[in-house]
Design a protein around this nucleic acid. Sequence first.
DNA 1: CAAAGCATGTAAGCAGTTACATGATTGT
DNA 2: ACAATCATGTAACTGCTTACATGCTTTG
Lengths: 189, 189
Amino acid sequence: MSIRYAILGFLSWKPFTGYELKKLFADALSFHWSGNSNQVYGALIELHKAGAVGVEVLQQEKLPARKVYTITEAGRAELRAWLLSEPELPSIRSMARVQLAWADCLSDAELGGLLSSYEGQLEAQAIMCREAARRGPLRPARSPREELIWNCVEEANLAFYEGELRWVRELGSRLATLGGAGGEGSGGS
Amino acid sequence: MSIRYAILGFLSWKPFTGYELKKLFADALSFHWSGNSNQVYGALIELHKAGAVGVEVLQQEKLPARKVYTITEAGRAELRAWLLSEPELPSIRSMARVQLAWADCLSDAELGGLLSSYEGQLEAQAIMCREAARRGPLRPARSPREELIWNCVEEANLAFYEGELRWVRELGSRLATLGGAGGEGSGGS
DNA sequence: CAAAGCATGTAAGCAGTTACATGATTGT
DNA sequence: ACAATCATGTAACTGCTTACATGCTTTG
């Protein structure tokens, strides 16, 4: 469960309940986790069993109990050890690119439709990123360094979508010059 | 099993055995599949049950039988339908960014180490992409259009790693100016 | 003689997803 | 009245990964 370190990260900032963490994940677009209960609550239970976090159960009158999780020294050590370990390369899987790779059985118009559909998705996503950045800071800023890093991570996330957007537009115009000049693709249905 | 469309794509090019497809996936870096037997052979069996591919079993004297898979009309139709469906946004999960986001408990030197380790990984990956592109064409080029698209997809893949590389270097120098000027992060272990 | 390639497949497991179950409270 | 928020958790599933099992052949 690789989300465990992300959870430890949040808890190294301050204590949270599962519910809060869930929302944090759902809102932190640059982290790309859906924030589903199964994973968050499950990971918290495991982290607790492993002694990486402690729980304080606050009974409430009418609502279910709040379980506030706090990172332990062992948890801090585990997080630190992970931070010092070799980073993995990001894993990207772009079905859109796979679609494009095999799109030669589409007509020029259909291929154009695929491109602009992808473009639309990317635009929407870029807007969401900007919006999230503007609404901003549900994030730690314990030092100027940390603030800088979070800004950069957010920027990198946005930059990815913007880069992809530039790419798909470039591809569109390159295809246009191809079609306009010489042969007619491999034709339609 | 989302790899099924990628398999149908390859088979829309020409017939292949499971073993060949496996290698194709392992070599096609821009597709980002490990090319493990489990998935490929399993998907082929399912595609066959669904009538999307046909098999011809060629007995060999001393080696195991070669099962050559061919796409059917139904398979072509399924592929086409997928190509015309809404593309999904690419899913990226970058553990390195998560590490950076929580790296404030590291010293400046440790953080620098993390950055350059990531940088090294990215450089290596970029080299592999360039190398694969140079060795090149284990790919269809049924039309100038298809060739253009495959080139662009390959370029986009490389561009991602190069962009990430630029980003991590930029982050490094921004952190340097921070540290050089004012306060000393939040200090080490 | 060991390693890599050919060629098929299975087993076990990890990380993630959606959707569901419960139930009170607050907002529109 | 209906929906959203608070708060916990479970069930079922998908897609992917590594490692293993078998066994013969070619290359170093």
